[in-house]
Amino acid sequence: MATYVIQRLGLMLLTLFAIVTLTFFLMHAVPGGPFVSERMLAPEIEAALNAKFGLSDPIWLQYLHYLRGIAMFDLGPSFKYPGVSVNQMIADGLPVTLRLGLLAVICVIALGVPMGIVAALNRNKWPDTGVMLLATMGVAIPSYVIATVLLYVFALKLGWVPTFGLDDWRGYILPVLALAGFWISFVARLSRSSLLETFEQDYMTTARAKGLRPGQVLFKHGLRNSLIPVVTVLGPVVANLVTGSFVIEQIFALPGIGRHFVLSITNRDYTAIMGITIFYAALLMVMILIVDLLYLWLDPRIKLSRQSA
């Protein structure tokens, strides 16, 4: 177990290093990018950048400077706003983004899985058809369309929830739903097909042949096994929820990291783009690691093969 975690952490650091390198050199290729010396910039920003990265130094030295910064969790100053660091921008938006993401993950699990169960238990009857119809819509309609439609209907027309801002809890409803919509549908479809497959397994017949009650058969024997594929997709789910929040934060005008990111793109705030990308990547990889560990705990067969390997 411990060796597995260490292995995974090692791979994660390697990936992160690859990402930092890739990002740095991509940004270097931008005409007028952060590490090019011929630019028109506010003098105080120029000075801050120079102090941080040594702009007159050769590129490999600048790269090392940047790496050293990353190692000390310092993403450098903003390219556009004097006196603001990328760290500050992230710290500013993180709580909102995390809260949104967490609520969305909860929604995905709390709505998607039960929807799948209901559909599987009523196979080919109306609850199944209804859930599958809804889920197919959720998978096909892009989140920004869902977001704008929700915004129009519930905020502008019906006025049930505020159109923007997070001043009270109702402000969270639409963004979270729009963010989670696709993945709720995805998880509903996945858990349905996974459950149906599990129902066919011999051990389910064994469980019934032991005289266990339907509830015991479903929850103890059926659900746990069919949830394994659902857990495996949770990693990508988390990743996509976080990247999906760019648009959602934009549409609902929420002050999260995604909004900062989109704003940095339009402003061509290169250091911010770099910093936020790297931060995102790191965040996602930690999340995926957590999900994988959860998976390990859920399926004992994996544990053995990993340990012996």
Binding site: Q201, D202, Y203, T205, T206, A207, A209, K210, G211, L212, H221, R224, N225, I228, L298, D299, P300, R301
Partner: peptide, 18 residues
């Protein structure tokens, strides 16, 4: 499972793996 019990063919798949 009480008065009538049963054993199936394939012990690989008849036991719950988790």
């Amino acid at each position: 499972g009480n008065d009538i019990a049963v054993i199936f063919q394939d012990p690989m798949t008849s036991l719950n793996p988790t």
